[in-house]
Design a protein around this nucleic acid. Structure first.
Length: 423
RNA sequence: GGCAGGUUGCCCGAGUGGCCAAAGGGAGCAGACUGUAAAUCUGCCGGCAUCGCCUACGUUGGUUCGAACCCAACACCUGCCA
C-alpha cells in the first residue's frame, strides 16, 4: 500500500520518522484523515523551524486531509524539557497574548473553508479547568514513571535537575492527542523530530486509554552542511513575523544557503517539481556563482511567508545594494523602497552632518559606537557602497542620496539605512 | 530539617587580595581567498572616550589604601543524609 501524499513528503525529505507506515498509508488512501500539529507559544512569533510543520500541514490538507492546528495555551504555560535546562515560566497573560499572535500566523498557511477546512484549537480549553485528581487518575495512571525516566531528554536532565512541572509536560501533550482523537476523530499527529518522544507518548496514551491505534510522523531537523542547526542569523532566530525579521533579512537568509544544502531546502520549502529542482541543482554544480538555486529558494519562501510584493521588494533592494550600479544613479523611488525595506530610521541632526560612526550606529549595522570604530579600522565599513577608512570621517552633502538617504554597510552582507533630517 | 559544594562575560570554563575588562575553548563579527557559498588563514570580540574613565564576576552590606578573590546576611542551584 502506498499513499501519494506520503510519497510526496518522502521524496521531499520531510519524513524523519513514522509509526507503522503501511497502516498510515492505508488510512490516508481510505479517506480524509484528521490530523494535528501543535505550536507552543514560547515567543511572540513562530520562527523558521515551525515553517516545516506549516508546510507539511499544507501538503496534507491539499491531499484532502483535515488539519487541526493546535496552539498550546496550556502547554505553553509549562514548557517542554530541553537539554539546556529548566525554563523560566512566562506569565499567563503573556502566554495568552502570544497564543493570539501565533493563531493569526498559523491561519495564513491553510484553507479554513470547505469539507476539510482547517480548525485552530487551544489545549487550554480542555486543561484549564481540569481537576487535578481527574488528571492523575485518568491520565497519570497510564504513564509508568520508570519509562518516563528512560526518555532521552529526561535522562540528560537528571544530573542538572528537572522540575516536576517540565517532567509532566509529556502528559499534557499526550492528553492533547487523546482529546483531539475523542473530539474530532484525529488519528495522525506530526511534529519536529525533537518532539518524537512526546508524539509517540500520545500514540501510546490513545492506545491504552481507548484501545485505538493512531499514527504519527516526525519531520527532520533542518541542518547546515556541518551538521549544526539551520535557522539562526546574526540577529538570532529567523522569525516569521515581519516586525521581528524583515522580509529583506528573511530573503537574504535563504539567499545565503549553502550550495551543498540548497537542493534539500528547495525540496522542503518550495512546491517546485522534481525536474525543476534537479535542473537548479545542476546549475549550482556547473555555475555556482550565479546562485540560481538560492535565488529560487529565497524568492519562493519569501513569497509564501510574506507576499509576492514583499518578495519583489526584497529582490529589488538586494539588486540595488549588491549590484554594481552606483547607488547615486538609482531612481528616487527605488531608493525610497530600499530604505523602507531596510527599516531606515530618521537621524535628526542640527546643522552639522553626522559622522560615519554615528550613521553606522544609528542604522543598527553595528551594536555600538565602539563596534563602529572597529568595523572602520578593520576595513569593513561602507557608506553608499564606498569603503570608509577614516574613523573620524564626517558625511558630506554629496553623501546624501536624493538629498536625505544614507546606506550603511558592515562587511559584505549587513546593510542598513537612515534618513538624515537636517533641522 | 542537617551536612557539603556551587552561582564568573552570549555559552562552557580558569581565576582565591593589587600585574583582572578577567586565561582557554566555543559561538559571533571583520579582513584575505571567493560567488552576498563552504573550508582555510589572520585580526577583533563590555561601554564611552586621545593617556583615561565608567559598568561588570548571584544580591545586599562589611573588612581593606585596594576585592571576582576575605567576612556576614539573603536568594537560587546541585549532591548526600533525614
Amino acid at each position: 500500500m502506498t499513499s501519494a501524499v506520503l510519497d510526496e513528503l518522502k521524496w521531499r525529505g520531510l519524513l524523519a520518522n513514522s509509526t507503522d507506515e503501511e497502516a498510515l498509508a492505508a488510512a490516508l488512501e481510505a479517506g480524509p484523515v484528521t490530523f494535528y500539529v501543535g505550536f507552543d507559544p514560547t515567543a511572540a512569533s513562530l520562527h523558521f523551524g515551525h515553517l516545516v510543520q506549516l508546510i507539511v500541514a499544507r501538503h496534507l490538507q491539499e491531499a484532502g486531509h483535515r488539519p487541526l492546528m493546535l496552539v498550546g495555551g496550556s502547554t505553553g504555560q509549562i514548557g517542554d524539557p530541553r537539554d539546556s535546562g529548566e525554563r523560566t515560566l512566562n506569565s499567563k497573560e503573556v502566554v495568552a497574548g502570544w497564543v493570539e499572535r501565533i493563531r493569526g500566523q498559523v491561519e495564513q498557511y491553510l484553507d479554513f473553508d470547505g469539507p476539510n477546512g482547517a480548525r485552530v484549537v487551544n489545549n487550554l480549553d480542555w486543561t484549564g479547568d481540569l481537576p487535578v485528581l481527574d488528571f492523575l487518575r485518568d491520565i497519570g495512571k497510564h504513564f509508568p514513571v520508570n519509562r518516563m525516566l528512560a526518555r532521552d531528554v529526561v535522562r540528560k536532565r537528571l544530573d542538572d535537575g528537572i522540575s516536576f512541572t517540565e517532567f509532566s509536560y509529556v502528559l499534557l501533550q499526550s492528553m492533547d492527542y487523546l482529546e483531539l482523537h475523542r473530539r474530532y476523530g484525529c488519528s495522525l499527529q506530526f511534529g519536529g523530530s525533537d518532539q518524537w518522544g512526546n508524539i509517540t507518548a500520545g500514540v501510546e496514551l490513545v492506545r491504552r486509554a481507548d484501545d485505538v491505534r493512531v499514527h504519527a510522523l516526525a519531520t527532520p531537523l533542518m541542518t547546515k552542511a556541518d551538521g549544526t542547526k539551520f535557522g539562526k542569523t546574526e540577529g538570532g532566530a529567523v522569525w516569521l513575523d515581519p516586525a521581528l525579521t524583515s522580509p529583506y533579512a528573511f530573503h537574504q537568509f535563504f539567499l545565503n544557503a549553502e550550495d551543498a544544502k540548497v537542493g534539500e531546502y528547495l525540496r522542503v520549502f518550495t512546491r517546485r517539481s522534481r525536474e525543476e529542482i534537479d535542473e537548479l541543482e545542476r546549475q549550482t554544480r556547473e555555475r555556482p556563482q550565479l546562485r540560481a538555486a538560492q535565488k529560487a529558494l529565497a524568492d519562493d519562501v519569501t513569497a509564501l511567508v510574506h507576499s509576492p510584493a514583499e518578495r519583489d521588494a526584497a529582490v529589488a533592494a538586494a539588486a540595488a545594494l549588491f549590484g554594481r550600479s552606483d547607488l547615486r544613479e538609482l531612481p528616487a523611488d527605488v531608493l525610497a523602497g530600499v530604505v523602507a525595506e531596510l527599516g531606515g530610521t530618521e537621524l535628526a541632526v542640527p546643522e552639522q552632518l553626522p559622522t560615519v560612526v554615528d550613521v553606522l550606529e544609528r542604522t543598527g549595522v553595528v551594536a555600538s559606537r565602539g563596534a563602529a570604530r572597529r568595523a572602520i579600522t578593520e576595513g569593513g565599513a561602507y557608506i553608499n557602497n564606498v569603503k570608509v577608512t577614516d574613523v573620524e570621517a564626517v558625511l558630506s552633502p554629496d553623501d546624501l542620496l536624493d538629498g536625505r538617504f544614507v546606506i550603511a554597510r558592515r562587511g559584505k552582507r549587513t546593510v542598513g539605512a537612515v534618513t538624515v533630517v537636517v533641522s
